[in-house]
């Protein structure tokens, strides 16, 4: 039996009067690729933010990788994020004035110490060996997303979170990015949680859960 990397029970998040996430019980075993689907506003991003330590739940319990996220201070959450989680956003979110390699090194710097050689090889691994010194503005959408992936995996996270990573990409780039993620996961053996509203993207995962209005409505296991 594979141990669980994420365990939630009665996890709730309210924004004022609006309940973005109704109590959810979720267990994610280590190494799983979980897709989270739902309409916009269904609470799927909220769930991802909670699991990634970017947001705090209003209620319930949340254990990720054996750590009780509710008990961590703000700086403790920051440490958790840099050591445990890699995040890929929909809108690439790179620091605009830093080059591709420096953007990767930024994650290293916050984690421990920067190591330029390692950052370069990470970019080469995602196929960007020729665009190391380019700033985000000079890269295409797919390339930017690959920089984000390099940055997300640079600190060897146990958990990779994707918030609609392919939302802004055309079909070809989407396939490329997903292929890359699959390859990396095979090597690094991290757990993936991917939020998407694209059925095709969700199909890359092992399991898909469906959220509607903050409630887990359906669960579906992929046949592999």
């Amino acid at each position: 039996m594979v141990s669980a990397i994420i365990e939630t029970s009665g996890l709730t998040r309210n924004y004022g009067d609006i309940c973005a996430l109704k109590p959810i019980d979720l267990i994610v075993p280590e190494g799983e690729w979980l897709s989270v689907m739902g309409h916009s506003g269904s609470g799927k991003s909220t769930l991802m933010n909670l699991v990634g330590g970017l947001d705090r739940p209003s209620n319930g319990s949340l254990r990720v990788g054996g750590e009780d996220l509710l008990a961590l201070s703000e700086d403790g959450l920051a440490r958790f994020r840099r050591e445990f989680v890699g995040i890929i956003f929909q809108q690439h979110h790179l620091v605009p004035y830093l080059t591709a390699v420096e953007n990767v090194m930024l994650a290293q710097y916050f984690h421990s110490v920067p190591d330029e050689a390692e950052a370069r090889s990470a970019l080469e691994r995602v196929g960007l060996g020729h665009r190391l010194k380019n700033r985000p503005g000079e890269l295409s959408g797919g390339e930017q997303q690959r920089v984000c992936i390099a940055r997300a995996i640079i600190n060897s996270p146990k958990l990779l979170l994707g918030d609609e990573p392919t939302g802004n990409l055309d079909h070809k780039s989407t396939v490329m990015v997903m292929e890359l993620l699959k390859e990396l996961r095979a090597e690094e053996r991290f757990t993936v949680i991917m939020v998407t509203h694209n059925q095709e993207v969700a199909a890359w995962g092992d399991r898909t859960i469906y959220l509607d209005d903050g409630v887990l409505v359906r669960e579906e296991r992929m046949k592999s």
Partner: peptide, 16 residues
């Protein structure tokens, strides 16, 4: 602020 938010998301604590 997006840049700062990004740094925080990547794992920068308050001191950094």
């Amino acid at each position: 602020s997006p840049e700062i938010a990004l740094m925080k998301a990547v794992g920068a604590d308050r001191l950094q």
